[in-house]
Design a protein around this nucleic acid. Sequence first.
DNA 1: AGCACGCCGACT
DNA 2: GTCGGCGTGCTC
Length: 722
Amino acid sequence: MAVLLPLPLAGAYDYRVPAGCTVCDGQAVRVPLGRRQETGIVWGAGRSGLDPAKIRPLQAVLDHAAPLPEVTRRFVDWVAAYTLSLPGAVLKMVIPVPEALDPPAAQVAWRLSGAEVPGLRQTPARDRVLRTLQTGVPMTTPDLAREAGVSPSVIKGLAEAGLLAEVPFAMDPDLPEPDGDHPGPTLSPVQADAAKELVLALGQGYSATLLEGVTGSGKTEVYFEAIAAALRQGQQVLVLVPEITLTTQWLGRFRRRFGADPAVWHSDLTPARRRRTWRAIADGRARVVVGARSALFLPYQALGLIVVDEEHEVAFKQEEGVIYHARDMAVVRAHLGNIPVVLASATPSLETVANVEAGRYIKVDLPVRHAGATLPTIDLIDIRRFPPEKGDWGQSWLSPPLVTALERTLEAGEQAMLFLNRRGYAPLTLCRTCGHRVQCPQCTAWLVEHRRLGKLQCHHCGHQQPLPKVCPSCGAEDALVACGPGVERVAEEASRRFPQARVELVASDTLAGPQGIAGLLERIERKEVDLLIGTQVLAKGLHFPMLTLVGIVDADLGLSGGDLRAAERTFQVLSQVAGRAGRGERPGRVMVQTFQPDHPVLQAMATGDMRAFREAESEGRRLLRMPPFGRLVAVIVSGETADAVESVARALARQAPQGAGLEVLGPAPAPLALLRGRHRWRLLLKAPREVRVQTVVRQWLGGVACPSAVRIQVDIDPYSFL
DNA sequence: AGCACGCCGACT
DNA sequence: GTCGGCGTGCTC
C-alpha cells in the first residue's frame, strides 16, 4: 500500500498493512519513517518494485477523521504534476495542521468540586472564579478566566488546591452557519438576470463563468445568490479572495446576507483556530469558507461551488514553495470536482478574457453601477504641463489642478483619496556629494526610507537599518537626500497643504492587524477622516459613499520595466482605484497624474474604452506568442556563490530543449540579481500553447548536473519577472 | 522535513 | 583528547 507523506519526498512510500487491518484510500495513517513516526495518507496500491524486506508495516490507522476525499487526492497529484513540485509538498498544503489528524484532544471544563479545603487562602480573584461557577454551568479555562476577570493561573491554582473538578466538554460547539434561506436584498433586474445564470449552473457539473461588472455594479450580491443556492442544495462553497486582511467590509455584507459568518482561512490564524476550522471543513460542517489562495487546497467534503473574487489580482500567484496560480488551480479543482467556478472582476485578466473568447468560459455581464450610481469622470493631468509647485516643505508631488480639486472636495465636506503604489517616504536615498545610492546588503535593491520609523528598509528581504547621518560611501555630512515620493511623503505634503483636513495614511505596513483595519474603516464611514492617502491596499473592494474624489499621484509607476503584464496590471490597479470614487449618491471624479497621457493604458482610462485597450494588448501578445497565446516557464537558478550559479545557468542554456516553437531566452542575471543574499540567474522557456511544457522541462533539467549548493526553481506560467 | 553520519575547529 | 559546527544523504 502506498502512503503519501506531507514531506518533500520524491513520491509516495510503500508500507505493509498488518494482517487483520483494513485501510482505504484517503485514510490517515501513522507510519514509521527512519527512526520517527509520521502521519500520511493512504495513496492507492503500492508500486511493488521494491525490495520486500525494506517495506515496514504501518503503525496505526487514524480513523476518527474522515478519509481525504478522492477529488482532493486527484487534485494533489494534478497540481504536483503541473507545477513540477513534489506531491508531498502539495499534500502539505492540504494538511497544513498535522495535529488536525490527531485524535481530538479531550477538552475539559471546570465545575466546583464541592470539596472543603481548610486553610485555603481567600483572594478576591479566587472568589470571583468560585462565584462564577456557582451557576452550575461548567466552563472552559479561557471562558472562565474571561468571565471572572482573572488570569488562567488563578484557575490553575484553584484546581491544584482541589476546589475545581474537571468535566468532559464537547469541543467545537456548533456555530451558527450561513443560511441559504436567509432573506436577501432585492436585486436590480440586471443583477437578478446575472444571478439566475450563476444559479442555473449549480449542480450541472463543471462550468467556468466570468462575472464581469464595472466597479460598484454589485457583483458580490450577484454571486451571493449562487452561494445561497449552493447552500440550499447542501453543498459547501469556497470564496477565494486576494487579500484576506481587507475583507472586513465583505464579511459585513456576507453576515447581513446569510445571518452568520463564514469560516475564514488565511496564513496567520492561531494554531487552535486553524485546527478547528480545518476539521470543520474536512467533515463538512463549515458551509462557506472565505480565504486566501491557500484555502483552495483544504479537503472540502462536499464542495459545490468556487468563487474567485477579483480574479485578475496577482496576489493569487504563489511565488514560493509550490509555485501556483490560485485562480487557475481553482478552475482545475472545479473541473476535477465537476462543479462550477465563478471568476469575478471589473477588469478581468487577459487570460480569462481569452478563455471566454475561445468558448471555454461563459461570460455574464453587469454593465452598470448598482442603485443608480454613475461611473466617475476621469481626467488625465499631464504633469509636464501642470508641474507641482514647490512648497515651503520642499518638493511637491501634487499638481495645481489636483490641489484645487482636493480643496473643493474638502470644502464640500466630502472625502478624498490619494493613491500612490509605493510604501514609505522615499524609494531612494542619494548622496548629494558623491552620488552614492543606499542599497540593501542582501538584495539588488535600493533601501526605502520609512521616515516615521526613522529607518531604511528593503522591501524584498525585510532588511532594516537606521537612517545614516553621514554618507556610507564618502562620509559627507548632511549630504543624503530623499529622492522621489512614497505615500508618507505625499501625506506630509497633504498635511501641509490642507492643515484643517484630517489625513490618514494607509499602507500594508501601517495597518495594525484586522482590528486596526476595522477601526480605520469605521472612522472613514463615520466621516472622521477627510483625506485618505494610501497604497494598493486602498484599491480593493472598499465602499465609501462619501468618497467623491480620487487622485492618482503617479500613474506611470509600474509601466516601465520589462514585465509582460505591466500595462495590463497598471490598467487594472488604476481602474480599481478609480472605482472607489462616487459609489454613493454623489458623483465621483478621478484625477490621474501622468507624464505620458498618450500611453494606451492612460488613454483607455480616459476614454473608458477598455475593450480597445484589451484588444490592442491581446494583439501584442498574440504576435509575440506570449501568454495567453503561448506558454512561459521561468527557470530560476540561485545560490550563495555567484560563480556556481552562473555556471549552472550556462549549462542549462547549452542543454536548452530543441523543438518546434520552443525558444529559451537567457541565461541572464535576474533583475533582482541578489535576493536575501542569494545570487540569481534566470532562463525563460517559451512554448506554443499545445506543448506539454512539464515534460520538456523535466527532461531538460534532468540532463544538467546541479551541485546541491545551487537550487533550480521552476515557475510554470510565471507572473513575476524579477 | 527531520535525523543520521561525517569530518574539521575551540574548549575542559 | 572531546563537544559541536553544518554539509550530504536517506527515509518505503
